[in-house]
Design a binder for these strands. Sequence first.
DNA 1: GCATCATATCCCAAACTGGGATAATCCGAA
DNA 2: TTCGGATTATCCCAGTTTGGGATATGATGC
Lengths: 77, 77
Amino acid sequence: MPKSLRSPRHQRFLAELISLRKAKGLTQAQVAEKLGRPQSFVAKYEGGERRLDLIEFLDVTTALDADPCKILSSLRS
Amino acid sequence: MPKSLRSPRHQRFLAELISLRKAKGLTQAQVAEKLGRPQSFVAKYEGGERRLDLIEFLDVTTALDADPCKILSSLRS
DNA sequence: GCATCATATCCCAAACTGGGATAATCCGAA
DNA sequence: TTCGGATTATCCCAGTTTGGGATATGATGC
């Protein structure tokens, strides 16, 4: 796993994304489909194997039908 | 400039960060100082030479004393 | 056990990053 | 104008990260 993805905040962020996905009853493959990406893409960012930049993050929140601001506020530190 | 950083949304995002920095009367070096990074770090992300992941983005908004949610909303597409 | 769905990992060439040094630009004062 | 300091952009390139199809591993029900 890349060095930069081990911080507690990042961990919380990932946990939040996973939790949101499951709350919507979506699989990684379904999210990947909405994003037009392979399932391994979702597996990687959820697993902290790959970073999401801001635009990708917005795309993911759209796919999850989630509010990006709420997620950000859960990351305030 | 890396391929993935050329989208119009990303461009708007960068323009927003630059605009915010200048509105605060800060130089790249001052922002870099707050971030504990070299000036070239700021020059690179502002120039689209490097991506910011979500955590880095939050750190930058903190350094700029800006509201991350407002920035996100300016990126709605 | 076995089928099926879901998630994690492999592989490795291609793409991206770090950051000190240095070049290029900007800008106000004289 | 021209000069000089302040500010921003670019260089370099080894080390790190990413893409995504294929495949392994794990979870669940029967």
